[in-house]
Nucleic acid binder design. Sequence first.
DNA 1: GTCTATAGAATGATAGAC
DNA 2: GTCTATCATTCTATAGAC
Lengths: 212, 212
Amino acid sequence: MRRFALVLNTRSDTYAAMARTTGSHSEITGPRIREAALRLFAKHGYAAVSMRQIAREVGVQVGALYNYTPDKQALLFSLLQGHMDELLAAWEAEPRGADPLARLESFVRFHIRFNLARPEAIFISYMELRNLEPAPFAAIESLRKTYEQELEAILAQGRDAGVFQLDEPRITAFALIAMLTGVNTWYRADGRLSEPEVASLYWDMTRRAVGA
Amino acid sequence: MRRFALVLNTRSDTYAAMARTTGSHSEITGPRIREAALRLFAKHGYAAVSMRQIAREVGVQVGALYNYTPDKQALLFSLLQGHMDELLAAWEAEPRGADPLARLESFVRFHIRFNLARPEAIFISYMELRNLEPAPFAAIESLRKTYEQELEAILAQGRDAGVFQLDEPRITAFALIAMLTGVNTWYRADGRLSEPEVASLYWDMTRRAVGA
DNA sequence: GTCTATAGAATGATAGAC
DNA sequence: GTCTATCATTCTATAGAC
């Protein structure tokens, strides 16, 4: 275990870093803890995963984890927050058409592509919110609401422009996001359909559902 | 606690039952354990709930639980299996139209009504499958697949009859079930829309999504 | 920054009395 | 059928050495 971590660490070792004590390789440990926690939380659930399990995956002793997080729940919160920040930033950076129909198609394809690229983060974002205290819970919920409102705004604009036939932009947004997120439960990269093909199928359903 | 349980028990007490020792009221304890476990698993997650917590909710000591389940996981499995059996039986008993369009509407309204009536069971059915061993997991998955195939069959029939415009009945079924199940994440009984109104909104979206 | 060692509490499950 | 008491294990988190 130790050997593996040291090998990885040589990527960015400076002379100063190499003068550290044997067990010191913090530059790589932090991200590896996050990756291991994400994977284990997604597979077994937050409550079912022990700090010892995470440490074992990373190849350190349990005490070392507490150099990177004050406690277990802060680690979960950090993962969820990082994921939501990444989601919102990626959508902001996504090229999108001017009219509501093109924007809706951009949203559908972006959502499926983004979600399929990080199934573990998506999974814990939907499953482990209940393990947060009220304040951290509210913070994540706020970010999620921001994302939902992006879709709601597109739907409202399309309705006002007479392009979409729908009465309830908010509820339609909930329905569409649930439908699109569901791809993660069945899609397999080695399956019959490619990701773009799946996205096109869902875009067809979405376009019809909003009456475009 | 004890008093409450005894009061409930008097409903069906026979002379023989009343001759039992003080702590004996099994006729009511079993269901109460299941109800408490369902509620607690849904709220906190299977792994986060202890047998002691369940016992406290029911008003018995932890040892008494093991008269009703060999272990904690068997209790979870029993809840999941009971829920899936109930779902399939309820759908079998549901009146449904002869043509695919009427059958699809029946399915949509049934699914929303059934799910909103038991949010806790729905929640753990989607969240706690990963806490089952491979064999129990496969058993529940098989029941779920049976239900999905009911919808898939309706979609395939409608497509073959030229009523629905869709290429992939299986994927369309996945998409629709995910969309419909999503109602549980936002619906509140004291909200602006009644359950039938919500069902009608989702039926509109469903009908359009399948090109009917 | 990581290690070893441990405090202090909680867990699932069982044994035996009533 | 339920209770009390307990075993053996596991857990989160911390203290102090290096």
